[in-house]
């Protein structure tokens, strides 16, 4: 385990995480239950109990630049098993939102999938698997992702080659529009 030097605590960061997640992170006493049950821990640079400690210690940069907040699969094991009833998965979620707002690059592959998935929702009103995959391959520069699965899934005749577009797709596009306006105005 790498030892990290704690910088000057940013108390405002801790307060913001608490406000946006609705959780009291100071209740964490480092039992490690969250980390013990975390299925994605193998991919993390900092285990989730350390993220919690770094949030308490106001280590904004370390937390928001971590890979961990991007690899969290939001399976809720940590939330369910926290003896202090902290919704740890929501703390991770909120840290990821803040990392986006702070323009951290994060883990590009995860971002590419998120972006391409939401792009299909914005355009058609519903997500579209083929479109999301195509978008991911383009954004992530991984054109051969899952090509081995194509001959297995195509004969099943269940992957729509064209998206299911809803009638009121403008309503959904407007949701994204208002969200983006709010983001620009720094809500």
């Amino acid at each position: 385990m790498d030892i990290v030097n704690l910088g000057k605590p940013d108390r405002e960061f801790t307060r913001r995480v608490e406000k946006e997640s609705g959780q009291t992170v100071s209740k964490c006493y480092q039992c490690g239950n969250c980390t013990a049950g975390c299925p994605m821990g193998f991919a993390y640079d900092f285990q989730v109990n350390r993220i919690m400690r770094m949030v308490q210690a106001g280590q904004k940069d370390l937390v928001l630049s971590s890979k961990a907040v991007w690899y969290c699969a939001t399976c809720e094991s940590c939330t369910v098993r926290c003896p202090n009833n902290i919704d740890v998965a929501t703390v991770m979620d909120v840290c990821r939102h803040m990392a986006r707002r702070e323009k951290k690059i994060g883990v590009w592959g995860v971002r590419a999938f998120t972006a391409s998935f939401l792009e299909t929702v914005k355009r058609f009103g519903r997500s579209w698997e083929m479109g999301a995959m195509g978008g991911f391959m383009a954004f992530a520069l991984k054109p051969f992702t899952d090509l081995d699965l194509v001959p297995k899934v195509l004969p099943k005749n269940k992957l729509p080659l064209v998206p299911h577009t809803i009638k009121a797709r403008k309503e959904v596009a407007d949701i994204f529009k208002r969200y983006n306006e709010g983001k620009r105005n720094g809500k």
């Binding site: 979620d93 939102h97 972006a115 939401l118 929702v121 519903r126 959904v172 969200y179």
Partner: peptide, 25 residues
């Protein structure tokens, strides 16, 4: 009728307001 995507995991990992609105429609 004319239901739309709830936003799934991608939406809530981006913003809770966006995710809530997509589902609430």
């Amino acid at each position: 009728e004319d239901w739309s995507c709830c936003g799934s995991t991608p939406a809530h990992t981006v913003d809770h307001g966006l995710s809530t609105a997509l589902s609430a429609r």
